[in-house]
Design a protein around this nucleic acid. Sequence first.
DNA 1: GGGTAAACGGAGGTGACCCTCCGAATCATA
DNA 2: TATGATTCGGAGGGTCACCTCCGTTTACCC
Lengths: 216, 216
Amino acid sequence: MSSSLSPRRDARRNHERLLAEAKQLFAERGIDAPLDELAVRAGVGAGTVYRHFPNRDALVRELYDAAVTDLREFAPQFLAAETGWKAIELWLDLVSGWLVASPHLPAVMRRVAELDPTHRPGTEFAPMMDAVVSRAKAEATLRQDVTAVDLSIMVDMLGSLGQYGGAYLPYWRRQLAVMLDGLRARPDLTPLPGEGQAFDEFHDMSHAKGSSPAPR
Amino acid sequence: MSSSLSPRRDARRNHERLLAEAKQLFAERGIDAPLDELAVRAGVGAGTVYRHFPNRDALVRELYDAAVTDLREFAPQFLAAETGWKAIELWLDLVSGWLVASPHLPAVMRRVAELDPTHRPGTEFAPMMDAVVSRAKAEATLRQDVTAVDLSIMVDMLGSLGQYGGAYLPYWRRQLAVMLDGLRARPDLTPLPGEGQAFDEFHDMSHAKGSSPAPR
DNA sequence: GGGTAAACGGAGGTGACCCTCCGAATCATA
DNA sequence: TATGATTCGGAGGGTCACCTCCGTTTACCC
């Protein structure tokens, strides 16, 4: 008989090992680090790398999926939080902190976004976040004009603080605190700008003097 | 005679052209895009590239320096703003918007940080930012526990929104608005956490259930 | 233990990129 | 315009990473 349901044990072991070493390698040397080096670190032959991951993109995708799976395990806690606001605090804190501690992930997320431009990182948790956001708005603890997408972007931004050689690391929690304060519902808030054409307005740079720094 | 003070005109022209094309190339294909391709795009021979920039790092450094020079031209406006708070609004808005419109820069900044770990991006503007921050604190418009470094990090985070294939671009101004709200002085603020050991506290992950996502 | 299918290792072919070198072209100077 | 110095172009050698291929090893099942 052939077509076994589960792969051989050594295969599974090597697969795990490769994923683990890839995290470290990508964190240290960037997402384009040589895969031959990955083979050496994992103590396997080059052939084994390409048998498990036909190309670099496949490896990147799997790293992304593994991250999503890891995160999913946390979901129940957030839904079980006492208040919607606490759930949001917990989510931003834990997830962004986890990203900061996983320096390979931001690059992986960017690469996945390149490979599939229709997919925004974090979409997997949109339903859950929508629920939490609604709840917090109903409590009037979260400002009304914020969306789940805004929160997901915040997580990405905070998570990218691990990318600058550790220099920004001590500021992660401070930035988180400032953002949370900016998210709180308050009586005198001016509403957030819409998501449309907000960026292009910038391009005229009319407030800039003489020779403006040329974008692009 | 030899050792001219200024290079020949064609040399200067090629130098500018190479810098300009490098911005576009790095924006499109990443900071490790082949330099031979740069030569083709700039319409010069490969030798010319390496005559002007002995290696990729030299090119990256020069792109960084050019960015700093561009930014410096804006400085007078900020110092001339009516209030310290307006200066801060202007700075965050213009600089982060300019970064978003210059998708090559975040990667350049990260690379520079790798090359010289003692150098944090934006240090060049520390004195100016310190002055503006003091002024805004004296007005009691800016929260007292925020530093110029915090602001510089915010700029970098906002500026990195151009990295995700344009999907985050429409949210740039919203994120900016939330951050500004978080920065405003208010009576009932809990102080920001210090810059020390804040991150390591995270690592115990004690609030996490069972198998925690393994960092690193 | 024996047999079979699955997985492994690593040498090596292929292609891409880096970078140099020198004859040709261009610029500055008089 | 003529001369010399500077810069250019692009072919090509060297290096490195990707990825395949097949003889060998390992795991699984009886």
